[in-house]
């Protein structure tokens, strides 16, 4: 974003100036104040909010979107990437403590894997198209030119609007599938204390989901609900939603989507290059017992007990 600070400052000045120095405001105080605050009148022209002369919230939305949301969002994503990169440089990949036994145990069922990857792909699509709509004008447009970028953006918008509802379905199924595994327990406190064994010297115990995964799950669910509801409001705006609702929804949508994006970057890092042996669980469905013991000891024990019983 160029000149964002300047823009924010100018906007603030403008607002102040309008409120305090507007001669109109002084003259017909009541009427014009009402208008400025979106009082609705009558219009023969039918249509959504056709009776509203000035909607004041549009300016707020513009300032929020082009200002804090875009700027902080960009910083948030960049810092997340930097942090992950730094972590990688500092700690490298989290290796297996012991050699692989060659014996694998089932970790993710076929259904779970299909669900994960489908939702993941939808998420990536949504994230990329969303980021394109937010940042493309500043980044890609100068490279591609207006015409090509517009085609891309149009495709992105279409993809975003159609994949969004599917993503919501995925999210709901995930909630059903993994809610039980993600109930926080006492173990999680320990896990967190040692940041999953990264900082502590003691090994961090975990069930099927460790506290990090649970954190991601709950971020995904809570921000996901926010992003879904706001997304539905924006995606199906044919129910006469007023602009103010669309604006609020858009703010909620972008903030929560940016949070999710940052979270997703972490999740992808940890689940792939960050942790040895993690990705194969979600690809093949099975993990080496060494990995299981190291990362999810309680789950592995439970798995063993269950096996013995049967």
């Amino acid at each position: 974003m160029h000149g964002t600070g300047k823009l924010l400052f100018a906007a603030a000045i403008t607002l102040l100036a309008i409120l305090f120095t507007d001669p109109l405001f002084a003259a017909d105080a009541d009427t014009w104040r009402q208008i400025r605050h979106g009082a609705e009148g009558y219009s023969a022209v039918q249509g959504r909010e056709s009776g509203m002369l000035i909607q004041s919230t549009g300016q707020d939305w513009r300032l929020l979107r082009n200002g804090p949301i875009a700027v902080l969002g960009a910083w948030g994503l960049v810092l997340t990437l930097l942090a992950l990169g730094g972590f990688f440089l500092l700690h490298g990949r989290i290796r297996l403590d012991a050699p692989r036994t060659g014996i694998t145990v089932p970790r993710w069922s076929v259904y779970e894997r299909i669900l994960h990857w489908t939702t993941a792909i939808l998420f990536l699509l949504l994230m990329c198209s969303g980021l394109l709509l937010l940042y493309g004008r500043e980044t890609l447009l100068p490279l591609l030119g207006h015409g090509a970028f517009s085609s891309l953006a149009a495709a992105a918008k279409t993809a975003h609007n159609y994949s969004g509802p599917l993503f919501i379905v995925g999210l709901l199924l995930m909630l059903i599938a993994w809610l039980g595994d993600n109930i926080p327990t006492a173990v999680d406190r320990q896990w967190l204390k040692s940041l999953g064994g990264v900082t502590g010297d003691r090994h961090a115990s975990a069930g099927r989901m460790n506290a990090g995964e649970k954190g991601w799950f709950w971020l995904l669910m809570l921000a996901g609900i926010a992003v879904s509801i706001s997304g539905l409001i924006l995606d199906f705006s044919n129910f006469g939603q007023p602009r103010s609702l669309l604006q609020i929804s858009h703010v909620i949508h972008s903030v929560s989507a940016l949070l999710l994006s940052a979270g997703a970057l972490g999740h992808i890092y940890i689940g792939s290059i960050g942790t040895e042996g993690a990705l194969e669980g979600m690809t093949t469905g099975r993990v080496d017992t060494t990995w299981a013991e190291q990362h999810h000891d309680l789950w592995y024990e439970q798995l063993g007990r269950r096996e013995k019983k049967s």
Binding site: E49, S50, M52, L53, I54, Q55, S56, G58, Q59, W61, R62, R65, L133, H146, G147, S150, A153, A154, K157, S237, R243, L246, Q247, H250
Partner: peptide, 16 residues
Amino acid sequence: NLCIGCGYCLYACPFG
């Protein structure tokens, strides 16, 4: 030719 119909201008415009 460029417009993608996203509606952001509608959100932002004070005058509808």
